[in-house]
Every structure is written in structure tokens, then in C-alpha cells.
Amino acid sequence: MTHEQAKTFISERFGSAQVEPASAEATAGGGMALTVTVPANDWRPFASFAKNELGCRFFSFSSAVDWKEQGLEVVAKVDNLDTGLSLVMKTKLGPGVSECQSLVPVYRGANWMERECYDMFGIRFNGHPDLRRILLGDDWVGHPLLKSYAVDTPYPPYR
């Protein structure tokens, strides 16, 4: 499946999804990843669609971006290793919202990535089987990659 076919397929199934880059020339070489921005409600359905129908079976990574007053944005990249199609999935959670659908029922590889995302950004993934901190200690207070987390926050007795 070429990038153009994937784009038309996505826009048929998910009308509210924005697919970038829009121009056909940018994706002509086939090396560039398609960036798909979906609404937060479509997060898991779109992942399931990408896995089962676009064949993107490889879960590359998942992370988040803190856009301050615009709220958090969750990012995930999935690949089809056979055809070379890469999808960068994005969803904006909205201001003040820190809940998101989990991708673990679709991709098992999302488990630890979402734990890290919870650890650093405090995003609670609904449907995640084991949402605990993964990198920081269990007694850590706060989520350090949020923009609201002050630099040089003391951590007694070591900081």
C-alpha cells in the first residue's frame, strides 16, 4: 500500500482525522512518515485500524508533549515493516485533561511506554493493565516533564 492509498483509506474511515503531509509530492519517495491527528475518542479505534487494516503491526514508541495552556498531546509511531509505511499518530487531549485511551489492548508494546508517559506527564491511560511509575521511585511526587514542574524542585534529602 502506497502512502497515497493509505491517505485515502484513512480519510474514508476516519473523516475527522487530519493527515499530513497533504501534498502528494512530499510522500512520493515513500520514506516520509504520515502524521495523522485524530480526536481523543478515536485514539484506540484508529490504532486498531492501523494495526489490522493498514498492517502497521510494529509499535515503535509512544510519548507526550506538554503544550502548556493548550493541554497535553499524546504521540505514538507505528510501522508497517513489510511495505515501509510509517504512521505518526497524534491526539490532543485538550486543556486540563490528563486522561487518554490506552493502546495496550491493541499493541502489547505500548505497556511500558505508557507507564513512562504516566511517570513523566501524569497521563492516566484508561484500559492500561498495570499503570505504575516505571523510571522514578514509587515515592516520587509530581510528574517532572510537565511544564508546570519547577526547575530545582527539592527532593529531600538529596536535592
Partner: peptide, 15 residues
């Protein structure tokens, strides 16, 4: 109603 799986601890901010 969706319950958060873990208790929400407010982050203290030392400014």
C-alpha cells in the same frame, strides 16, 4: 464513571 487507576498526587511546586 471512569476511575483513575492510581491516586492523583498534586505536584508541589517550590518557587
Amino acid at each position: 464513571e471512569i476511575k483513575p487507576p492510581v491516586p492523583i498526587i498534586p505536584a508541589p511546586i517550590w518557587r
